[in-house]
Amino acid sequence: MLLLATVFAEAGATSLLKYSDGFQRIAPGLMSFGVYVLVLFLFSHVLASIPASVAYTVWTGLGTLLLILSGWVFFGEAMTLVNLAGIALIVIGVILINRRQGSSS
């Protein structure tokens, strides 16, 4: 659950960066900075219980998925077949990484 909180916080921080318009808007930029600090704090606790290779793969994969979707929903970015294929591959990859971690090999 903590890893999912980290993923959502990171996606939120990155979205705030988009809203900051290259730090032309100070408030979203400063909020983004604060949320990134929270992300590092949360992720350090995630690494105490989950192997770094798994945690980082899930974090980046799901974060990318959330940002693709938020770009489409909130920023009007295009959703193409390539994006959808990428989303499918990310989901499959995260499932495979977690499945491998759960098995005793």
Rank of each mutant, 00 (worst) to 15 (best):
L2N: 06
M1T: 07
L47D: 09
P28M: 04
I92W: 13
I90V: 11
A88Q: 03
A85S: 14
L66V: 15
T60P: 02
A9F: 09
I50L: 12
L2K: 11
G76A: 10
L65R: 06
I50G: 04
S53R: 00
L96D: 00
S70Y: 09
G86V: 04
I95C: 10
I87P: 01
T64W: 01
Q101V: 00
W72Y: 15
Q101H: 12
L17V: 12
W59E: 09
G71P: 01
P28R: 08
L2I: 04
E77M: 01
Y36F: 15
E77I: 00
H45I: 00
L84H: 02
I87F: 03
I87C: 08
L65H: 06
S15G: 13
I97H: 03
S105F: 10
V73Q: 14
L16W: 01
F75T: 08
G86T: 07
N83L: 06
G29R: 03
V94I: 14
L65S: 15
V91K: 11
S20L: 09
L81W: 15
G22P: 00
K18W: 10
V94D: 08
G34S: 08
L3D: 06
E77H: 03
G76T: 09
Y56H: 03
V7T: 12
G12R: 01
Q101W: 09
K18E: 07
W59L: 15
A9L: 11
F43W: 01
E77W: 01
P51R: 09
A88C: 13
V35N: 08
S15F: 13
A11Q: 06
A27C: 03
P51N: 11
N83Q: 14
V39I: 13
Y19N: 01
L2Q: 05
S104M: 15
S103D: 11
